[in-house]
């Protein structure tokens, strides 16, 4: 591949991810609104929010690390987008592979932890410690699922995993081949996106949105951008592992929007888990399912 072509892909992939991610944010807010029998936000609301936050005229920064933390949070996801193949573009997915991708998806939380740490707000500290504990909890089934899928396909290369799933229609999808892993992945996804019942680290009424408590203006704007990337990453990763990736853009978009809609559609059914219950849940049920799925794969 010519280097200009690669450069173009490296720029285009995060950019598209951002716009699709804004669509996902809108979708989620619309679903939430419909479930509560409201009309919900207008079409461009995510864009208005992000632009408004960056247009704030006075900003309160708590220091260099506060700003670098946000850059890390977005940067980790921007790097992850270039490792996620989309129809027509592979970026550096061939060279990177699943393990790098799994690593990149953890960087944003760590960056956020650094940034929040400098704010020195007790609510923020409580929030981020809960968020990192939650990450420790859902990453165990997540890594098991990633390992199981990679083992089943005998490759850590996402491009090959997708090609293997597209070889024989729906029957070759990861969802059909390894349903237990797919289920465990879906539960991990719920935790990864921080939807109910796993949203104790945000807890607006109790700890004032936890990690976001000191974030205003461009900092919160950065986190809104991060949220777009996060939804996109989660949707595309799950689609690539279990739903056969995208044959073309139409099926690809339908699949990734369906994947991110599931956690929101069931979110309001649940009350909230406490942190220790959350860890107990993730290390019990999704981990058990993933291990069982892994046993089938290894057998």
């Amino acid at each position: 591949m010519h280097w200009t072509h690669l450069l173009l892909e490296l720029i285009l992939m995060p950019l598209m991810a951002f716009f699709i991610g804004m669509g996902m944010v809108l979708t989620l807010r619309k679903i939430g609104a419909k479930l509560q029998r409201r009309i919900g936000p207008p079409f461009f609301q995510p864009l208005y929010d992000i632009l408004k936050l960056h247009a704030k005229e006075t900003q309160s920064s708590h220091g260099l690390i506060h700003e670098i933390g946000i850059v890390m949070a977005i940067g980790g996801y921007v790097a992850a987008e270039t490792l996620l193949p989309v129809p027509g573009m592979n970026g550096i997915a061939q060279q990177g592979g699943l393990i790098t991708l799994a690593y990149m998806t953890m960087i944003p939380s760590l960056g956020l932890a650094l940034g929040v740490g400098q704010c020195a707000n007790p609510n923020g500290s409580i929030g981020i410690s809960r968020a990192l504990t939650a990450m420790l909890a859902y990453d165990v089934p997540f890594i098991l699922v990633v390992f199981g899928t990679a083992y089943a396909a005998q490759s850590t290369n996402l491009v090959e995993i997708i090609a293997a799933q597209q070889s024989d229609g729906i029957a070759s999808w990861g969802l059909v081949q390894n349903p237990l892993l797919a289920l465990a992945g879906l539960l991990a996804l719920q935790g990864m996106l921080g939807k109910q019942p796993f949203e104790i680290y945000v807890a607006p009424a109790e700890i004032a949105t936890g990690p976001m408590v000191e974030m205003g203006g461009k900092f919160l704007g950065g986190l809104f951008i991060m949220q777009c990337f996060q939804l996109y990453t989660a949707g595309v990763l799950y689609t690539s592992l279990f739903l056969g990736g995208g044959e073309n853009w139409l099926t690809f978009l339908v699949k990734i929007f369906a994947v991110v809609s599931i956690p929101m559609a069931i979110a309001y059914l649940f009350p909230r888990f406490r942190t220790e219950d959350l860890v107990r849940f993730f290390w019990k049920w999704p981990t058990f399912l993933a291990l069982l799925g892994l046993a089938f794969v290894l057998h």
Binding site: R38, Y48, P204
Partner: peptide, 19 residues
């Protein structure tokens, strides 16, 4: 909430003065 729904005007509650 559902009867008057401020969110359709882009208004939503936040919990911290910074936001």
């Amino acid at each position: 909430t559902s009867r008057f729904d401020m969110e359709r005007l882009g208004i939503q509650p936040m919990v911290s003065p910074r936001q």
